[in-house]
Design a protein around this nucleic acid. Structure first.
Lengths: 198, 198
DNA sequence: GTCTATATTGCGATAGAC
DNA sequence: GTCTATCGCAATATAGAC
């Protein structure tokens, strides 16, 4: 029971900070929802800011998995593209709070994300870039492909579906499209778009 | 000079709310930067919230231009796709505060964006969907194209470049790619990806 | 329309008992 | 580790003079 309150605070923080943002979430709300005393936030995490940092870092940790999987094992260029899409799908499926919590940080990065960008995100981009370069060498992709643009493009194609979900759900009569349908179609279009032309 | 303070407050609000967010911006800061008395915020806009609403609505207004331009005049399917990209480029070039202010709303939509989604954004999606359908009928695009997916895809390809700018600028050694280069390449890849296959 | 002064609320943090 | 009680601060909003 001893460290239970710490874990409960962390999980509640992910939910509340994601839904309401850092400033609109008070330590009193947080403590009430987690069923612990509000003074324990300072005790366990130093401050409200410290708790927020722990929450964001815990969510971002999932992205590290991609880097590790992508670097281990033999992966063809297309494998890497598929792996990135599958990782993002997994993240958003298993972690409903990732979008709000982390995308907020993407728009206005704090020191937390600054560090993460340097230490991890950088390699996500690099891995995809390397896969595209290899695809060009192997004659799979167009010789004139602008790799820098294509990396952002692929990340965008995959991410925007999740990013735009909150707003799309607000549009009346908007059909809800399954993520897998979208991603399959997306990979297909991207690959036909970048493949070598005859 | 009479209504000058109102206009100055609005412009300052766009800048500060975009940079620091609603909660981290105080009416005192706002008033100081705009060189007006803080009580004038309540006088002109009712409340801090009212000023925020006015700021977001002013920025979103630019998107309405797209709907109007796209609906007037003869536009081929490809014209529409290009027009959307050009509109977004124009928005982000002329309005450096659009990303932070409006994308924040996209992630956690308030009542303001809720209304905007129903009244305007809906039609942006519809216009692109209609263009894609027409392209299929005319034999330009693949018969098996999933239009719902492709609409999100095109919006994502165009938007993610701007959305990811803040975080990309934090990655060391990341080259800054001109928006026009990206968008040209993007249209090219998207069109080859969705065109009819022989 | 603009200003000063202030009422009121809610926040994060912590001292100190258990 | 957990709790109560409270301090000190900064926020928005507004009443009322000019």
């Amino acid at each position: 029971m001893e460290n239970d309150s710490k874990e409960k605070l962390l999980q509640t923080a992910i939910e509340l900070f994601a839904d309401d943002g850092f400033d609109k979430t008070s330590i009193r709300q947080l403590a009430a929802k987690a069923n612990v005393n509000s003074a324990l936030i300072s005790y366990h995490f130093g401050s409200k800011q410290g708790l927020y940092q722990a929450a964001v870092e815990k969510q971002l940790q999932i992205l590290v998995d991609f880097t590790q999987k992508a670097q281990n094992g033999e992966n063809s260029p297309i494998d890497i593209l598929e792996l990135y899409a599958a990782t993002m799908l997994k993240i958003h499926t298993e972690n409903p709070y990732f979008i709000k919590l982390c995308y907020r940080e993407f728009i206005a990065p704090s020191a937390i994300l600054e560090a993460f960008a340097q230490n991890h995100l950088k390699y996500v981009f690099e891995i995809i870039a390397k896969a595209l370069h290899r695809g060009i060498e192997e004659g799979l992709f167009r010789q004139d492909l602008d790799v820098d643009a294509a990396v952002i493009l692929w990340a965008g194609m995959v991410n925007f579906f999740f990013f735009s979900r909150p707003i799309r759900s607000r549009i009346k009569d908007e059909k809800s499209l399954p993520a897998t349908t979208y991603l399959t179609q997306t990979l297909d279009i991207f690959l036909s778009g970048i493949k070598r032309r005859d």
